[in-house]
Design a protein around this nucleic acid. Structure first.
Lengths: 229, 229
DNA sequence: TAGATTGTTAATCGATTAACAATC
DNA sequence: TAGATTGTTAATCGATTAACAATC
């Protein structure tokens, strides 16, 4: 079985009632809503509307309301949404009530950049381990953490209760690192290596491939040139 | 008008016949097929089947055949696909026949990592400019290029025929950089800043937000914990 | 009450899957 | 010819959009 993207469609407890499935497409947009809500909060805005929030998140207000309807009923007709409250609820649905612990495997240029990225902490994640296979890198300090040997992965994941692994290793090592993360027991993997990864059904993989993103842009650029724009 | 993702659905010339629309979902998978074809080629495999290629790309063979059918008819029934030929055709559809030139704006940790990433060149892109707003960074050499001042953007884009801009600047500067790229005339933008960007209809934006990816993984992790797995 | 805005319904649209006829 | 595998069709499924009744 091969999985590259998208996990299963699972339920969310809604206050007293039953369980509601949140569609994958909706889940994928929730972080954007959370971001927009954070910005509104920072600007001191207390109440917002589906129009305003949608505008900021870059979606239509119809889609925003539809998405939020899967989570429950957190607005007031005629009034709008309370920013702080909605923000908290979306956070709960995304499982950010508990902080998730993350390891980064592969401390090259990209691993360095990720380790130093402050957005992780700001948005609910703690980077608790950096690992690398290269003895020359092991022992160095990056972003306040000492890089540990890659073969310590199982111990690090278990002892520090890590649930998400980030793969910033070279493509040829990606599947090996992935297997090690799965064996160590993480439930989610974010990979930057340009390779499809094989994982068991219970593990969720998200893949970011920068060159693929550029190729998708190239497609549109090519059409544009061809049709003379 | 706000656009964060996905461009328009545009056509591809097929050998003699008319124009066929390639659905966005298909376009988004083409880079993965190209990658898998490259790997097959590297292994010296000359002919492949939809089963084999799909397995490597991490999709179903039905989906692969459906996707390829939008591009034209490049296989032989009973036989399969010639790796080199299919690879070339997919490349043509993605507009990789012409090399695209790229600038990176924001040479912090991430910009550094991107500038040094060899995958760009390997997959059809030339990084021809690095720009930063910080005078302390301007003038330094990164990945063989001298970092130029951000306000030289228009000149760099025009003189070096740049069609794609990569935003690796801080979130608060993202919209400003985006506007400058649009004014300079790029047709596609890849942004790593956690912000929805406003662009005119004729410009295509792809957004990579690492923390959002982790939040999506957190959602699945939370369901898993809740349902006791 | 009148105006505003949500939450939901129904219609539309696009994507995926399965099955198989065409054909090498 | 018999076996294999594509390309396409039709059915299913999921996502988006628009409109509006509910209600603050």
């Amino acid at each position: 079985m091969i999985l590259v993207d998208e996990g299963v469609d699972v339920g969310v407890r809604s206050s007293g009632a039953g369980v509601r499935a949140v569609p994958p497409a909706t889940v994928a947009r929730l972080p954007g809503y959370l971001r927009a809500l954070g910005a509104l909060g920072d600007e001191g805005i207390v109440t917002t509307s589906s129009d305003e929030l949608a505008e900021r998140a870059g979606v239509s207000s119809a889609q925003l309301r539809k998405d939020l309807s899967f989570l429950g009923s957190y607005g007031r007709r005629g009034v709008g949404y309370e920013v702080a409250h909605l923000s908290e609820q979306v956070g709960v649905v995304l499982g950010l009530a508990t902080q998730r612990r993350v390891v980064i495997v592969g401390i090259g240029n990209l691993g360095h950049a990720l380790a130093n990225y402050s957005g992780f902490a700001e948005r609910g994640f703690a980077v608790v381990g950096l690992l690398d296979a290269d003895p020359a890198v092991v022992g160095t300090t990056v972003a306040g953490l000492v890089v540990e040997p890659a073969d310590e992965l199982a111990r690090v994941v278990e002892q520090r209760d890590v649930s998400i692994g980030v793969i910033a290793a070279p493509a040829h090592a990606a599947q090996r690192v992935c297997d090690a993360l799965v064996d160590a027991g993480v439930s989610g993997i974010l990979t930057f290596a340009p390779r499809a990864l094989r994982v068991p059904d219970h593990v969720d993989v998200r893949a970011v491939d920068v060159a693929s993103e550029l190729q998708i842009l190239a497609f549109h650029d090519a059409r544009r040139s061809a049709t003379g724009a």
